[in-house]
Amino acid sequence: MNTKLKEQIKMLPQIFGVFFRIGPSTFGGGYAMIATIEQEIVHRKGWMEESEMGDMVSISGSAPGGVAVNSAAFIGYRLGGVPGAVAAVTGITLPTFVIVFVLSLFYALFKDNDKVEAALKGIHAAVVALIIMAAFKMGKSSILDVPTLFILATALSLLLFTGIPPFYLILGGPLVGIAVVIMKRMMGLSIRTEAPSAASKQELNFPEYYI
């Protein structure tokens, strides 16, 4: 136990270092990062088996939070326990934090510059486009049948026309999901709860980029 602990502590700076490097280089959380992480952790460092990456992807995709931070937490934990997870998450977050910070300082300096303001308006439009893409991608993997379409329509109208806190929607979605599945089972209907995975595998590229 003691030697294991020592080993874990010795790993900490290394874990931190790897994720510190991954952080800014991939520009973006999201699934784009998984390829980089795999390259670094499985192939270069040999810290994990390739087969474990599947667990990592499914956990970091379904836990709350960004995929990148979640993957870092998962790998850090596997390698160095709780301190390892903290080191990995700090490593992956710190560079971004500093960059965001420097950006906002620059912005404060040039705030009143017309060109900067115009550039930000352009970026604003691009971000809207990326959000639409994200919505489309998410929709493709989530709208599988009539009930899911109904859930989407209900959630969207509640958001648009009432001031309901999104928290209740996030709580309600799974409950409705479970109810629908139980009802369909009772009626003897088969139900597909996931989109076929072949499609989502192929699109590990960048459309999901910022998610």
Partner: peptide, 26 residues
């Protein structure tokens, strides 16, 4: 199966949140 059913219901909600973000932000 419970976890799968939960995500079956949660995913459309997330889609709704993203569409709303596009609408609101745009």
């Amino acid at each position: 199966a419970w976890v799968k059913s939960s995500f079956y219901g949660l995913r459309p909600v997330i889609t709704g949140l993203i569409i709303y973000a596009a609408y609101h932000f745009g």
